[in-house]
C-alpha cells in the first residue's frame, strides 16, 4: 500500500543543513491503522508531508498503492493526492468562506466528477459523520468537533485508499477527541488505511501499529512505543 525505502530529506540553507529524515524505511499494508509519534522536530510532519505527496524528498524511493512517486511531476502528484489520499489536519483547514457542502465539494471538483455524483457523495459522507443537516452552515457556526467531522467527511468524499491525519484531535477537548477517534476507528474497520500523526500516547495506543520517530529515523515500532511512553 505504502512503501518508503531509505527516504532522506535534507533542508539546506546557506549555512545550515538539516536532516529532517534519514534513511527512513516503512511499509504500511492495506487496512492498517498506524500511529506516528515522536518529539517535536523529530520529523513526524516531514514524514507526513512526504507520505501525502505534499513535498518531495532528497533521496530514496516511495511507492504509493504500487505507483512509484519518485519521478512524478507536480500535476501528477496533485492528481495522485486527490485520488488516493484523504487529509485530516490538526486545525481542520476548512475554508471559512464556504459552507459545509462546498467545503466537502472542494476535492471532488478537482477530481472532475459531475454535479450529481458530487452531490451524492457529499450527502453520503455528511450523513456518515452525522452532519447532514448542517450542510448550509459555515465552519464558524460549528463546534471544533463538528468542524473536524466535516474535515473527515471531506477527506472521505473522494473514497481515498488511505487517510493521513495530522494531529486530528489536537485542537479538540477530550470528549470531542474521543468521538473523532471513534469515527476514525470505524472508518478503518471498513477497510480504509489510516496513518495518524499524534503526540497523544493514549490515542496512539488505539492504533493497531505504532511507530516512533526520533531524529528523522524510525526509532521503535509496535511494542517499542510503550517503552518510549514509559521512559
Amino acid at each position: 500500500m505504502l512503501s518508503m525505502q531509505n527516504i532522506s530529506m535534507v533542508y539546506r540553507t546557506e549555512t545550515v543543513e538539516t536532516h529532517a529524515l534519514r534513511d527512513f524505511s516503512l511499509d504500511v499494508e492495506e487496512g492498517e491503522f498506524v500511529s506516528v509519534t515522536g518529539p517535536s522536530g523529530s520529523g513526524k510532519t516531514t514524514f507526513l508531508n512526504i507520505a501525502g505527496l505534499l513535498e518531495g524528498f532528497t533521496s530514496g524511493r516511495y511507492s504509493l498503492d504500487g505507483k512509484d512517486t519518485t519521478q512524478l511531476d507536480d500535476a501528477s502528484r496533485s492528481r495522485l493526492r486527490n485520488e488516493k489520499i484523504g487529509f485530516i489536519f490538526q486545525s481542520f483547514n476548512l475554508i471559512p468562506e464556504l459552507d459545509i457542502f462546498d467545503n466537502v465539494d472542494v476535492p471532488l471538483r478537482y477530481r472532475g466528477f459531475d454535479s450529481a455524483e458530487r452531490r451524492r457523495r457529499i450527502d453520503s459522507v455528511l450523513d456518515m459523520v452525522g452532519l447532514a443537516s448542517r450542510k448550509k452552515h459555515l465552519p464558524s457556526q460549528l463546534s471544533g468537533g463538528q468542524q473536524q467531522r466535516v474535515a473527515i467527511a471531506r477527506a472521505l468524499a473522494g473514497e481515498p485508499r488511505f487517510l493521513l491525519a495530522d494531529e486530528p484531535t489536537g485542537n479538540l477537548d477530550s470528549a470531542m477527541a474521543d468521538s473523532v477517534m471513534e469515527l476514525l476507528e470505524d472508518i478503518n474497520s471498513k477497510g480504509t488505511t489510516i496513518i495518524m500523526v499524534t503526540h497523544e500516547p493514549s490515542l496512539a495506543a488505539r492504533a493497531r501499529r505504532n511507530i516512533f520517530v526520533r531524529d528523522g529515523q524510525l526509532s521503535v515500532e509496535d511494542a517499542g512505543l510503550k517503552v518510549a511512553i514509559g521512559s
Binding site: D74, S78, R81, F87, Y110
Partner: peptide
C-alpha cells in the same frame, strides 16, 4: 494556508 489546503486536496498549480 487555504491555498496549501486546496493543493493538498488535489488542486494543481
Amino acid at each position: 494556508k487555504q491555498i496549501g489546503t486546496r493543493r493538498a486536496l488535489g488542486a494543481t498549480r
